[in-house]
Design a protein around this nucleic acid. Sequence first.
DNA 1: TGATTTCGTTTACGGCTGTAGACAGTTTGA
DNA 2: TCAAACTGTCTACAGCCGTAAACGAAATCA
Lengths: 129, 129
Amino acid sequence: MGQRKQSPGDRISEAEHAVMEALWTESPLSAAEVCERVCADNDWSIPTVKTLLGRLVAKRVIGTEPQGRKFLYHPLIERSDYVGGESRRLVDRLFGGRAAPLFAHLAENEALTDSDLEEIEALLKEMRK
Amino acid sequence: MGQRKQSPGDRISEAEHAVMEALWTESPLSAAEVCERVCADNDWSIPTVKTLLGRLVAKRVIGTEPQGRKFLYHPLIERSDYVGGESRRLVDRLFGGRAAPLFAHLAENEALTDSDLEEIEALLKEMRK
DNA sequence: TGATTTCGTTTACGGCTGTAGACAGTTTGA
DNA sequence: TCAAACTGTCTACAGCCGTAAACGAAATCA
């Protein structure tokens, strides 16, 4: 029990996740710079971004460093850790922790493109060794 | 735009999902019967289950039918629709809608058992045709 | 140096979620 | 027939989420 992997902190909400993506793509960024890359897409205004950044800091998933007199924000957790955690949560909750049924489901619903199939096949071959 | 697939209604919360699982496994069930299969696991009391059932009815994802003078509840949406919707949401949000990276991720983190691999391989072969 | 801009922080507020108690109607046991 | 048991509905309330305005400090422009 215990062994929280998703970093020290709480869960990241969906809106917060959009901010994280911006910071994972490029960091450190100021609040204004974050807004430049997410506000339009989500129809947010600056105050909203500031709130989200504040909450992420409170949750200890991003950190701040003073740049001159302002702050720059940067992630404290790896994107792959977050993504892994969320994936695992879904697989656990919906597929009893087994990935094959998920795969089957995606396949069934044509959620897999041909290139997906090829890539996965390649990966499989890779792991076979 | 539009084309809501996950049935008529709102999103299902995590607690509500536990109730749905019970009903997908067996239905119709009375509130008491639902409680029998989920209360212990989640450390809930009957009132909680009643609230969840009420909300699910309001969201139009389960329906009621009078049994004698009481009610029996049964799902109005297919589990596979729900699961498919959730899976797709995750893949869209975290992997740009492409399933191969998800698969790669699960593989990398040893989230795939040997039997998962075998099953997936079989599925692939199946789809190849 | 006073006015303006720029930040970060604090406060706000309605909605959803988790969890549950109170209440009213109905059925059933005595 | 009167009380006990059970059922669904209504109400409650704290916490988190989405969204944002208000405020106060610092920096810059004139």
